[in-house]
């Protein structure tokens, strides 16, 4: 899916927990996330801390979208 969207010319940042799978499916910009049931959160944290964690991950993703890469890159 990542690959096909990128093939259409969009930079795609893949935020996923299982990095090897992301590499296998051909994502070029990869952000490792927290855990499979909650990639962009962590129920063990307080609501405020959890949102802060998510903000950090999204910021990292946006940065990745601005970064030129020549090969599969795990940010």
């Amino acid at each position: 899916m990542v690959k096909e969207i990128e093939r259409a010319g969009f930079p795609v940042v893949h935020m996923c927990t299982v990095v090897p799978i992301s590499l296998t499916v051909g994502a070029n910009r990869i952000i490792p996330t927290v855990a499979i049931p909650y990639p962009l959160g962590n129920p063990a944290l307080t609501a405020v801390d959890e949102k802060e964690l998510r903000r950090k991950l999204v910021k990292k993703a946006l940065k990745a979208l601005e970064t030129p890469v020549t090969e599969q890159t795990v940010f």
């Binding site: 096909e4 969207i5 093939r7 259409a8 010319g9 969009f10 893949h14 935020m15 979208l65």
Partner: peptide, 26 residues
């Protein structure tokens, strides 16, 4: 199927002038 979905999604994104995509997986 995911190829097919992605192609249709990409078409839609193009029409909406999207610049970049955040794709999340679990």
């Amino acid at each position: 199927n995911s190829k097919k979905f992605a192609a249709e999604i990409a078409k839609d994104l193009l029409a909406a002038n999207v610049d970049a995509v955040i794709l999340t997986s679990t």
